[in-house]
């Protein structure tokens, strides 16, 4: 087991990357991923018109809060579809019998697979970002630089989430099982663990992943405005109820007050722009640690 790679190892990793990209782009999962992204974009764009509203007169913050809200979930779906099968498919589909018997280090194969997965996933999400930017230009006359920062964090999130998918892919024997487990881990297990933790959870994958949206000030301001509006109307209602002498109504007022004080039990928190460097580091570390575990398993896996 060696980390050492020379120039020809990197050349071979490049060859694997190229092949993996061609293979993926021609595959059904790529088409499905692209369709998922376009469907999300289409729904967000068209549904306001279908319900009698529209995008005219909306602020950049309003638009971003709609378009970016689903980006992390969409990222995870794409990672589950593409990255979770990257390693296991070589064994399950018996293509390893061709590739692994060639004079190439498994580390080069592994590296090529990481790069191709992240590139393809980033490409799919880049389409979403370009379409979002186009909508912003059309309806608000411009697009903020922070959208690019958001895309940068999206790539880091893809890198980290792909790492988790690679670990699962290295250990299991069936690609379909890998996809389900990846979805379960990324969309349920990690968020539940984060929810159960007390205090600031900046080091958790999903919290750091939220930086995709919280790094955009327009989004943060718009979101906080909505929360403050909600809290203020709640407070108005509570103040009114407090004037009552009926103990039952006072109980309701007390309960509503606790909801406001706890920011809807933590579900409607005032958000801040996080420490971007720290969150970028967290995502990188999650990715590197996960890829390391997956690499150890992958290079030792026997056919």
């Amino acid at each position: 087991m060696s980390f050492y790679m020379d120039a020809s190892d990197f050349r071979q990793a490049y060859v694997v990357t190229k092949n993996e990209i061609v293979k993926s782009v021609r595959g059904k999962k790529f088409v499905v991923s692209l369709a998922v992204i376009l469907l999300i974009f289409l729904m967000i764009t068209v549904l306001p018109y279908a319900t009698g509203g529209g995008w005219s007169g909306k602020t950049s913050g309003d638009m971003l809060s709609s378009y970016l809200s689903y980006i992390s979930m969409a990222s995870l779906l794409i990672v589950a579809l593409l990255s979770s099968v990257a390693l296991v498919s070589e064994f399950e589909e018996r293509t390893a019998l061709i590739l692994f018997t060639r004079p190439i280090k498994r580390t080069s194969i592994f590296l090529g697979k990481i790069i191709s997965c992240v590139l393809i996933e980033a490409f799919i999400l880049a389409i979403y970002y370009i379409l979002t930017a186009a909508m912003l230009i059309v309806f608000t006359g411009g697009v903020s630089f922070e959208l690019l920062t958001s895309f940068g964090f999206c790539i880091l999130y893809l890198f980290a989430a792909s790492g988790i998918a690679f670990v699962i892919s290295a250990f299991i024997k069936k690609g379909s099982v890998g996809t389900i487990i990846t979805l379960l881990v990324l969309l349920m297990i990690i968020p539940i663990i984060t929810q159960m933790m007390s205090g600031d959870t900046w080091f958790m994958l999903n919290t750091a992943g939220n930086t995709i949206i919280t790094c955009v000030p327009d989004y943060v301001n718009s979101y906080n405005e909505q929360i403050l509006t909600w809290m203020s109307s709640m407070q108005g209602a509570i103040d009114y109820l407090d004037t009552s002498i009926d103990p039952n109504i006072l109980n309701v007022a007390e309960f509503m007050q606790s909801m406001v004080d706890s920011q809807m039990f933590g579900f409607m928190k005032i958000i801040e722009i996080p420490n971007l460097a720290r969150e970028a580091g967290v995502l990188l570390l999650w990715g590197i640690a996960a890829y390391f575990v997956a690499w150890i398993k992958f290079i030792r896996k026997e056919f």
């Binding site: 092949n19 061609v22 293979k23 018996r94 019998l97 004079p103």
Partner: peptide, 15 residues
Amino acid sequence: GVGTVIETPEFYPYL
């Protein structure tokens, strides 16, 4: 400098 055919290998179907 070694060529191999181990069992009946599969290929990437999209190539």
